[in-house]
């Protein structure tokens, strides 16, 4: 069964075996407004936890996306080039950003689960 974890930077990661799929949360897409462009990392790129790996842009804002864990990118969501609005419509579905092989699963422990993230959002007011 897939486990989903969340970061304080409003990224989510869905873990299936050694692979993690990463995107931004419903809260994040609401904050951004209409997404117009997503710059996703190329397959093969090695990324470190906390490294800036992607950029998501609305008309008024650009946000850096930090990888919630370390690993190697295996696939980027190419469909976002044509339909960046998917991030608004289905942030946790077809609006995903990229997939990576997770280098160190213990890094997942530092992330929040769904309940923890919900509490975190409440603390933001």
């Amino acid at each position: 069964m897939a486990v989903v974890k969340y970061s304080e930077e409003h990224e989510w990661i869905r873990v299936e075996g050694d692979t993690g799929t990463i995107g931004i949360t419903q809260y994040a897409q609401e904050q951004l407004g209409d997404v117009v462009f997503v710059d996703v990392p190329a397959a093969g790129r090695k990324v470190a936890k906390g490294e800036s790996v992607a950029v998501v842009e609305s008309v008024k804002a650009a946000s850096d996306i930090y990888s919630p864990v370390s690993g190697e990118v295996v696939e980027a969501n190419a469909a976002l080039a044509e339909s960046p609005g998917d991030v608004n419509l289905e942030p946790m579905g077809k609006g995903w950003f990229f997939k990576l092989t997770i280098a160190d699963k213990s890094e997942l422990d530092e992330l929040m689960d769904e309940a923890g993230y919900a509490t975190f959002l409440k603390s933001l007011g």
Partner: peptide, 16 residues
């Protein structure tokens, strides 16, 4: 996620 926002002439989050 760290945002860099438009700090110029009045474009807020919502879109036209």
């Amino acid at each position: 996620m760290v945002q860099s926002l438009d700090r110029s002439q009045g474009r807020e989050g919502g879109s036209a």
